[in-house]
Amino acid sequence: MTETELTKEIKSGSARAFDEMVAAYKDMVVNTCYGFLRDRHDAEDIAQDVFLEVHRSIHTFQEKSKLSSWLYRIAVNKSLNLAKKKKRRQLMSSLQARFGGEESPAEIPDTNMPNPQADLEQAERVQILQRAIDSLAENQRIAFTLSKYEQLSYKEIAEVMATTLPAVESLMNRAKMNLQKKLRKYYENG
């Protein structure tokens, strides 16, 4: 079934078509969410919310873009919203710990390495890089994450972000440049 046919079937209320879409895109959505959240449980929960949102609002999807692009867009928005909420919560708990005298729970890194202990240096590098990515401007972060985690082409990223190809090229160049700058600052100070 093509994407257009699948969309049409889902719009007509076919549960089978919806299941087919979930089967086809669930890994893509989970991985995209993971790229922004770096926590498997959160990524899975948000991916569920993405499909619930699709189920709720498929009638508003006008098929001006590909179904996959629409899914990416919802996944990015929901992931970034949760990432912001988590950041706020972390800030609050660290403030509470600082002023309330409580110890904040130790952060357990989810580095997605097959065996993090086997290569601690590598795990540390991943964390350093992830922090640098998180501190990029939002649109640079989106473009960079979609490119690196989902291996989307610049053209595909342009469709997801509803922008032009030159704009994505520029975002990617700036993202790489800023990452290098941040990493240089980190290593030079070390």
Binding site: D27, V30, Q122, Y187
Partner: peptide, 17 residues
């Protein structure tokens, strides 16, 4: 160091449902 760190992403496994 920078190049090594940037290359880390190439080795990150994809997350699956």
């Amino acid at each position: 160091q920078i190049q090594k760190t940037l290359r880390c992403l190439d080795e990150v496994e994809k997350a699956k449902a």
